[in-house]
Design a protein around this nucleic acid. Structure first.
Lengths: 327, 327
DNA sequence: CTGAAAGCGCTTACAG
DNA sequence: CTGAAAGCGCTTACAG
């Protein structure tokens, strides 16, 4: 039998409103406080969150909409987001959309219906439907990983990351380059990284770059890399993500090509695994944990009606390791 | 302005109860159905979930308590759990405990307070406190990954997995073996896998096995492996998890030891990455996705008061790849 | 400091 | 098939 505020009011011989006040830190006389302390102790009372939310018309919940959980970047960011939020009394509700854009839209409305206080969207593409949803729900939203001028956004400095990788690769003497990117639908990963890379190339003479496109999965990359290696002889394959780089390395091994002696490889991301493999992967480290934590701080500010910069740009660090040869 | 059931009742000129019935699939005349269809359409009405739950005294939410999100096994299982649940109209609420056992207990009570319908606990250890919590909350619980006689449990056949690995390793001619395990606090990973392995060894003559213990992290394994290789010359290191195996491989590379020519390595788990690295890792594949899906089915049955086997044992498959040499 | 009362948005018998 | 009414458990002005 669940005890309610009415039960404990009766036992303690006070009014329900007094109990409520006590519970919410309002002023109560010492005598009643004592009594209430005890009664609540004994009954093991705990408030019904629905009734609370129904009245208060809000919750302490923050929603995170994530395209997938089983990726290094997502799990890192979500974990730190969750920890930071919980440390401040918020609860994180994670919605996995399995990379289905329409589910993303559904999730936005769904979360709003559940009176979530704020939303963090791990964004890949921002469509019209997204914007419509944001306008309708009137709940603070933060975009993580992509930017849009009308929404609070947190992005990595993908352009610089691409530029840094490009500069380093050229410095190491590479002139025959294959760039294995992803769809341009993804502005951050597909466009910005490539643009930064291209800028580095532009500043150098006699460089030849072929651009290719792959899916995000390792297995996609294995296929793409194989077809590149079939017809081309680049000294390096610059990959738009660590996952793709891993796939390329696999493809190389499968044909007996040694890395980095016969083929150099780079990635973007800085996944843990890239340090452990052999040779370790030269890549750009993205601060996924830091981003999650910062996203938490920002959404909490927005929820409390405090100011937040419309755009936060997070830096990245070039990680020079073993997968690139000097030629 | 949020529209409520009262608003739409007024607009459609019917009673609130009629609207509610309409919403919940009760019998309504064709005329009123038409009208309601339209009004709800126009107003974009969506029900307040708190009010619903307050009355109904339950939710369509299932809670998952997870020690960490950033592991292959957890993210795989959670993803499929989530998908299966959503396909049946349930929502998954994920609670990350950051491997803190006391947070796990808190989470159990927390979820109960939120009137969650069922709980899936990604278990590592089951303590007294857990059992007390389970009894108090009176909500269906499923343990995933560990077993307890008083709770519905789903486990992998760790004993057989250990046995299979052992049999294979011996078959390949290995006689000087280092077994790198984990704490025995973890019955499944620390005890069962080792016991299965030992059983295989017992059936063979002249085998020498040294048992060591490592933490779960790759970096822990690098250290443990280094100290093993310093003083010992096993022909193989059998590791209790893929993560540990990855760490061992790293340690070997760092000292210029070739795998598998100079040292063989095996793991448990079947993480995706183990197929991509070079040499690919011989390991036992655990069906994390299948497990998640099955856990979803089981908890839904329990929530609907249907019978579920107290113990579900899930099989594993030996994956023979490149990291073990025949000697 | 304390209590009575209204109300949050919905559902559920109970009549009609 | 439809409606009036009570109630889920809590909070919030408003008096006292």
């Amino acid at each position: 039998m669940k005890t309610t505020i009415a039960d404990i009011a009766k036992i303690a011989e006070v009014a329900k409103s007094t109990v409520s006040r006590y519970l919410n830190g309002g002023s109560v006389s010492n005598a009643t406080r004592k009594k209430l302390d005890q009664v609540i102790q004994e009954t093991g009372y705990s408030p019904n969150t629905f009734a609370q939310s129904l009245k208060a018309k809000k919750t302490n919940m923050i929603g995170a909409i994530v395209p997938r959980l089983d990726s290094f970047s997502a799990s890192q960011s979500v974990t730190s987001l969750d920890e930071e939020l919980r440390a401040h009394g918020y609860q994180l509700l994670i919605v996995n959309t399995s990379q289905d854009l329409s589910r993303e839209i559904e999730a936005i409305y769904d979360l709003a219906r559940q009176k979530i206080s704020g939303i963090i969207l791990f964004a890949t593409q921002i469509t019209e439907a997204h914007m419509t949803a944001f306008e309708q729900i009137k709940i603070p939203v933060i975009l993580l990983g992509q930017q849009h001028k009308e929404v609070h956004s947190m992005i990595y400095d993908d352009y610089s990351a691409g530029y840094e990788i490009g500069k380093y690769v050229l410095q190491q003497g590479h002139r025959e380059i294959a760039y294995l990117g992803v769809t341009e639908q993804d502005i951050a990963v597909g466009v910005k990284r490539k643009q930064g890379f291209q800028e580095a190339v532009r500043q150098k003479q006699d460089v030849h770059v072929d651009f290719y496109e792959s899916g995000f999965k390792m297995s996609d990359a294995v296929v793409s890399a194989s077809s590149i290696l079939d017809k081309d002889k680049p000294s390096i394959i610059v990959c738009a993500t660590d996952n793709i780089a891993l796939g390329v390395m696999k493809a190389a091994y499968m044909r007996g090509i040694h890395i980095p002696e016969q083929l150099s490889v780079t990635g973007f991301g800085g996944y843990d695994i890239t340090e452990v493999i052999h040779p370790s992967l030269t890549t750009v480290k993205y601060g996924y944990s830091t981003a999650g934590k910062l996203a938490a701080k920002n959404i909490m500010r927005l929820v409390s009606d405090k100011e937040v910069e419309p755009l936060t740009v997070m830096g990245c660090d070039l990680l020079i390791r073993e997968s690139v040869d000097k030629i």
